[in-house]
Simulated assay, not measured.
Amino acid sequence: MDQVLERYTAQLPLTIRQVWYSLISDGVLVKEERTYKQTVELLGMARRSGRIPWEALRDDTEIRAEPLAYEGPDDFRAGLRRAALEYRLDRQAGQPVRLEIVCETAGMVPQLVAVADPYGVPVGSGSGFNALPAKRGAALRAAADGHRAVRVFVVSDWDPSGVHLFSALAEDVTAFAAVDAPGTEVVFERLAVTEQQITVHQLPTAPQKASDRRSFSGTSTTQAEALPPDVLADVLKTAITSHRDMRVLAAVLEREEEERRRLLQSLGFDPDAG
């Protein structure tokens, strides 16, 4: 487990299933439900003992809303400075295509954000995006964006559920766009997992569940978490940059930095202070 976390330091936090699949690929474990449960237990003990950092793994079991509060005026002023330092423009401005990313597994979202955030590309979880209001929201964003073409990258399992997620998103968002953003091109592209990736990276597979009778063209199933995190990061970065004009992005970043410095100065902060 330590070697897996060290190998994917740049992609932390990982989900427990990603650690499990990495151990399977390394030949340490066999792909059985009992070994997954053992991995859950071992990772839990490792975190409790302090052997691995709590932040190294992604947890999605807690939903918490914390009221915003300050220790006093100085803390509030420090908050203003942090906010000014985080000032940024729309980094998709001026690009020919607006990009979005949807990931079926919520636990993988932070890894995708780490790749997409420098380009200003939003990432959503499939569980949240699959609701009708969220699908219509995608169409409304397209309409508000001046009918610029939209491309949505999808990361989902290669199984009936993941394939259905992709097709349902594409069909519903396209239908909503026809009403709310007529004339806007909305394209959905499956980034992972694909049959080619399964073959190239020799990903672990499992038979389709007999109880799931939805249409599925594959002969076996594979979870998106089976794809090595660094490979997924490379796939996503390549997909994003292939649709970016880097000169336009560089100009936006230059303006962003200039405005950030002016904002800090207007608030009485030294823009060159560490």
Rank of each mutant, 00 (worst) to 15 (best):
E254Q: 15
Y87P: 03
F76E: 14
L14Q: 06
V115T: 00
S211C: 08
E254P: 03
D26F: 03
V109E: 00
Y119K: 03
T35W: 07
P228A: 12
V155Y: 01
S211P: 04
R88F: 01
T35Y: 12
A138G: 06
S125T: 03
M108Q: 07
L68Y: 00
R98L: 10
E104T: 12
E100G: 11
D245G: 14
P228D: 07
D117H: 10
K135M: 15
M246W: 04
R244D: 05
D59H: 13
E86L: 09
A226G: 13
S220H: 14
T184L: 15
K135A: 14
L80C: 14
S25Y: 03
V40P: 01
P271V: 10
G268T: 11
V193Q: 06
K37V: 07
D2N: 13
T199F: 06
T222Y: 09
F176M: 04
L169H: 15
E71M: 10
D145L: 12
T199W: 06
L236A: 00
Q11W: 08
Y8D: 09
A78W: 09
P133R: 02
R88I: 02
P204Y: 11
T105Y: 05
V248F: 12
V186M: 05
Q197S: 09
Q223C: 04
V109F: 00
V248L: 13
A181E: 08
Q196E: 15
D234M: 02
P73V: 10
T238K: 14
Y70N: 10
Q111I: 02
I63R: 14
S127T: 11
V187K: 10
V235Q: 06
R91K: 02
L42Y: 00
D172I: 08
A226M: 07
V154G: 05
P182H: 03
A142Y: 03
T205A: 12
R82C: 06
Y87D: 05
A251H: 04
C103K: 00
E55W: 02
D159W: 12
E33N: 12
R151Y: 10
E254G: 11
P53T: 08
Y8M: 08
G274M: 09
L89A: 13
D26Q: 05
A239E: 08
L99Q: 06
V19W: 00
A178T: 13
L264K: 02
L112P: 00
R47N: 01
V102H: 04
T174Y: 00
R58S: 15
G146Y: 06
Q3P: 02
I24E: 03
L264W: 01
V40T: 05
E66R: 13
G128Y: 03
V40C: 07
V231Y: 00
P53D: 07
Q223H: 13
L99N: 00
V193W: 11
P229R: 06
V30R: 08
V4Y: 07
D159H: 09
G124R: 02
T105Q: 05
P67D: 01
A116S: 01
Q11H: 08
Y119G: 01
L253T: 07
N130R: 12
R64T: 10
P229E: 04
A239Y: 11
A250G: 01
R77S: 15
Q18Y: 05
A149H: 13
P271I: 07
A239W: 13
L85R: 13
S161E: 15
G79K: 12
R47T: 02
K31N: 15
